[in-house]
Every structure is written in C-alpha cells, then in structure tokens.
Design a protein around this nucleic acid. Sequence first.
DNA 1: CATGAATGAGATTTCATTCAT
DNA 2: GATGAATGAAATCTCATTCAT
Lengths: 197, 197, 197, 197
Amino acid sequence: MARNINRDQELRKERTNDILKHAVELFAQKGLEATKISDIAKKAGMSHGLIYNYFKSKEEIYASLIHLNLNSFKEQLEELYQTKKPKELLEGIVRDFDKRKWNEAGFHYFFVEQIINSDAVNTELKEALNRGYDEVVAFLSRIFKEGIENGEFVPGVPEYHAHYFLTVLQGTIVFSSKSLPQNIYGYTMLSYLYPLE
Amino acid sequence: MARNINRDQELRKERTNDILKHAVELFAQKGLEATKISDIAKKAGMSHGLIYNYFKSKEEIYASLIHLNLNSFKEQLEELYQTKKPKELLEGIVRDFDKRKWNEAGFHYFFVEQIINSDAVNTELKEALNRGYDEVVAFLSRIFKEGIENGEFVPGVPEYHAHYFLTVLQGTIVFSSKSLPQNIYGYTMLSYLYPLE
Amino acid sequence: MARNINRDQELRKERTNDILKHAVELFAQKGLEATKISDIAKKAGMSHGLIYNYFKSKEEIYASLIHLNLNSFKEQLEELYQTKKPKELLEGIVRDFDKRKWNEAGFHYFFVEQIINSDAVNTELKEALNRGYDEVVAFLSRIFKEGIENGEFVPGVPEYHAHYFLTVLQGTIVFSSKSLPQNIYGYTMLSYLYPLE
Amino acid sequence: MARNINRDQELRKERTNDILKHAVELFAQKGLEATKISDIAKKAGMSHGLIYNYFKSKEEIYASLIHLNLNSFKEQLEELYQTKKPKELLEGIVRDFDKRKWNEAGFHYFFVEQIINSDAVNTELKEALNRGYDEVVAFLSRIFKEGIENGEFVPGVPEYHAHYFLTVLQGTIVFSSKSLPQNIYGYTMLSYLYPLE
DNA sequence: CATGAATGAGATTTCATTCAT
DNA sequence: GATGAATGAAATCTCATTCAT
C-alpha cells in the first residue's frame, strides 16, 4: 500500500470542504439554478469534472449545505445553551449571524422544496433535511419556553416565537442587499420579544 | 380597417393579464428559475410563441409582476391611509395579505437582484422597480412615524420599523409552506409593535 | 357588380409593386434570410398578413425580383440594341447601372441556388428564372459577337466576354460599399475590352 | 496534471480546424444564413454542442474563416512577391485560386457587412477583418504599381486595378456554379491587363 | 380586403453530466 | 485522482404562415 489511507480521506474531506465553501458564496449570491457547476469549479480552482468525484449533482451540493447549516445552527444553539440564558443565547445567534456567511445558503429555504423533490438528491439526505429542520424548531421552541417562563420574553406560544425568529432571520438575508445598518433586523426583531421594563 | 381596434386593445390587455395571472402562480409555487416559459404557456392555454408577443423574456414577466405588486401594495396603503389610523391600517394589510395571492410573487425579493442585473429586462422597467420599492418604504415610514407619534406603536426609528415590517411579510411567504396557522407571523409581528397596556 | 374589376386589378398590381419595391431595398441591404416578412410589411406600410394575398412566400418575392430584374435587364438590352452599337450599348448599361437600384437584388445571384431549391417557390417561376438567365447570356453573347466582328471589342469568345461582363457587374454590387468613385469597376472593366488605339 | 497539455492543445487546434474545414464547404455551398450550426456539426461528425466549445456563434466561425482567408491570401502574395514579377505573381494567384477551396468562403464578402454588424462576433475579430482587408488592397496596389512601371500591365491607377482584380475574383466565386471552363474568368480578366504586343 | 393574434416548426444556445486519457 | 473534451436533453427564442374577425 503506497498511499496512506488516512491521508487520502483527509484530502477528500478537504476537497469536499473546498467545494462547499466556494459553492455557498455563489448560491448565496445567485441562487441555485443561476449558479453553474463550472462557476463553482472555477472558484474552487479545480476542474468541473472533479466535482463529480465528491457530489453526485449540483442539487446534492446545495442539499449538503443546508444540511451542514442546520447542523451547525443546532450545534451553536446547543453550545450556547450550556452557558447562556435564553435571551443572551438568541442575542448571540443574531450577533454572529452575519459572520456565519458560510451557512447563509442554508437559509435559502426558498429552494428547499425543489431540493426535496429533486431526483438528483439521495433519499437519505432528504430525510436528514426534514429531520434537521424539525429539530431546530423544537430546540428553539424549548428555549423560548424557558425564556417566557423566566420572564425574559413576552408571553406567547413558544413554537410561534420560534417560527417568528426563523422568519426574521430568513428575511434578514432576503433584504440583506439593502443599506440598513448591519443586522438591524435581527436586533429590532429581538427587541420586540423583550417585555417592556 | 377590418378589425376593431378597441377590441384588439382589450384583447391584448386580457392576454397580458392571462399570462401574468398564470405566471404568478407558477412563480409563487416554484420560483423564478424552475418556472419555464412553456409551463406558463400551457397553464395559460396558449402557445409559448404567443408569450413573446407580449413579453420579451421570462424575466420581463417576473419584473412586471413585481412592478404590479409594488403598485398595488402602494395603492392599498394609500387607500387605507384615507380612513384608517396607522395601527388599523397595518392590521388591514396583514389581514388581507394571504388573500392577495395575485401579488405574492412580487414578494419573492429573493430574485430581484437577478432581475435587476438581467439583460432580458428593459431599463425602464428596472428603474420603475427601484423607484417603486423606495416609495413603498417611504410611505410605510411615514405611517410608522405617525403611529409612533400618536402612541399606537412603540418608539423607534420609523424607517427601521418599515423594513422590519417588510422583512416579516417577506418571511411569511418564504415559510408559507409550513403548517402554522395562516399568517401567524404577521399578527405576531405586529403585536410586537404595540406598546404593552 | 358593385366593384370595378379593372380598378381592382390595378390596385392589385399597385400593391404587388409596393411590396416588391420595398422588399428589394431590404434584400439588397440585408440579404434573403435576414430580411423578415414583417420588415417588408412595415416598410411597405401594410400588415404582414396582407403580403400573403400577393405572394405565397418570402422566397417567391425574392424570385419575382430576380425575374423582374432579368426581364428588365433584357428589355434594356433589347431597347438599346435598336439604336446603339455594341460598345455604346454596354457603356449605357454600365452608366445606368447604379441608377437601377430597383433591380440590384436581382444580382444577388448568391441566393439563387436557395431559391431554385426552395419548395416555397412555384415551379413555373423557377423555370422562368433559368430561362431568363440563359436568354440574357445569349443576348449579351450576340452583342459581343457583333462588337468583336466590327472591331469595337478585342477578339475572343463572345460567351466568355458575356460572362466576364456579368461577373464584374456582380462584383460591382458586392463591393459597392467600398469607397471607390462610383462604378469605377464597370468602366474599368469595359476599357479592357476595347482594342488599343 | 492528469492530461497531456500539449496533446490537449493540439486536439483543440485540430477540432477548430475540423469545424472550419467543414463549415467553409457549407458556407461556400449555401451561404451564411442557410448554413445551420447543426449542419456543420453533422458534417464535422460531432455534436452541435461541441461547436460552442470552440466558437461562440455561427457568425464567429464565419468571421474566422474570412480572417484566415485574408491572412493566407496576404501570405501567399508576400511569398510569391519574393520571387515573382507582378504579372507572374497574379497569374499564380489566379491559377491556384480554385485549389484553395478552403478559403473560398473568405470571398463571400457579400456577408461581411452582416458580420461586421453582428453582436455575435467579438470586436477584436471585427477590427482584424477591417485591417486585413485594407492590407490586402494596399499590397495588391503596390504590386500593380510595380507592374505598371515595368510595363507588365497597362497604365492606370494601381488601386483601381487592385479593386478590379478583387472584384473579378469575387465574381468568379459567385458565378462558380455555372458551367464555364474552370476559372476562365480569372484568366480572361488578367488578359485585359496585359498591354497588346 | 385587411389586420394582427396565434401557432408551431425549427434554430440557437446552455450546461449538467459522462468518460477517455 | 484530475482533466476538459464531448454529448445531448432541454430551454429559449424567432418568425413564416394561417386564420378568425
């Protein structure tokens, strides 16, 4: 065995990340269909053929990104959950939101339906996406529930608060090209969840 | 003149509306890119060639819809402004929002950037879009300004309130496929703008 | 009978000429395929549908023009033949050539093959074209024969002189956009056919 | 690097030539407009899509051919110029003219205007065409000037002789489908430029 | 006759995907 | 693995021609 298998796997991982990293910027910029495989390849400095060694289709790249995004979002939530109270926790999410460019495309939920219905994405990944989304909502709901209970948030149905939160985060991206002070939406939004003093 | 000119003009208007009416449903359902000209033609019960008699490209149809939407939105605002106070006014908007299916696609602002950069849309229309959007924001800001002054809304920068409002309306659509009670987002959102009693 | 049949036929003739007159300019400018039926209609100030009352296809318009051109060319030859000697005769042709804009497209022999093979032209017309061309060559040959015999032209095969003459006339058109003194080609050409003094 | 770059470049060159070689025959046969991309592809034994890998449009193929033709024509002139006197030189051009099928389309100057005005041809190429044509005329004029001076040609304006020469070459092609002895035009034409003995 | 809306065949063009090297 | 030439399905778009009014 002339090659080091571990090293090979590492390389594979690296390549995969390369692709995703560059793909996400393009997806965020131009959307799913307007982003060409060859754009991604060029940006990532490789041949377009090589991409098919790592992903079976463009849709699969996109699906992977949403998957990653949901997971990282959930992880971030969980991590913050260890040390923060609900209010601080969500403020942290909002504060870091625009740093998490990497994951933005994951919020292009617009396209999710296309992905879910696409033959070009394997079933496993599709199911993972559905599951992941539900988990995020569930986790957020739990946080809001606690926040409402301890008075950090105004009363209401926690699940509605959760969707409201996601809605505005989504809106943040959609409107991100407008010229308001960075992330004003997020903070404004959160402020509405605080009880008046 | 062997034909009735007025009738012809009416016909043209009708056809234009036919196309827009069916296009908007498809755009709302599948987005800009996944909607094919031939889909629109089939749905509208005409040949694809005919569409090019009325619009020079798919993007132009889309742009027309946004344009119409902005205008109708602005008109609705202006009309309500005659008789309603700010709070009632915005509640009216939210209440009727899901009835205005026709215009929904106009809120797919996701694609607006593509439209704005597309060669397939004539410059005039592009400018109208930009202008229209600014006018809507300006009008909303004015409403919020009054609402803040008369105590109907919590204090804040009216323009931020306006963007927040639009953001959530936008989010409403993006998430509209999920199973929450209709338009919970909109009402939830507005509730955050009311001062506590 | 409410309508005057003769008047109707005159009108038909006029319309036909209208179409041809405007078509020829476009064909001369842009060629056969690049000229659209609707261009011709617009230029002639009528609806495109009406053109089909007079010609069964675009190719037929083109074929008609060549036909007319050949005929008028032959007539001109025959008319001049009554009073002129060969040398004067051909000089007359050359001199008037650029005034005969009307017929220029008839010299776009480039497209003749397309016409001859097109289903959109009726057989009769096609045969007329072939016949017409042969007649022109025959007539020119006869003129050159006389001119050679009476010493007005240098010796040679009359038929070759004829083709040479047509060749350069054709070339004249092809190069007509270049900036040489009007019709220098024609005169230069003829000068080579004169014996030195 | 898994592929042999040199081999790839050769391949690209070959393919480009393949396309041009087959395109020129079709253009010569049917003209610019009647030649479809798919005709070229079929004749060249490749998929139509591949052609777009090498040329951005049909017009660009055509323009390339004219460009090549002008260049090869100029080179031929320059090469012959090393060893031949003007008269011999031009006779050489005429003699070889029908062997140079490859370049024929370059003489379809008929279409050049369309090419020059087409968006589908890049500016650089257009300028090269204009430049190339002027250079050819200039070179020919110089040859005629010398030929006139040394008595090989009849007196006259060299530039006119040059245009006359090109005109007839052009005419040769246009009439090439007719049944005269091969290239009679060319020789006939040149004979008119020789002083009588 | 005259019009222009409507059709649909056919051409251009793009690009995801495959595969020989 | 890596490359990019090659394919071909699918979309866009054009326009000659027909036909109801």
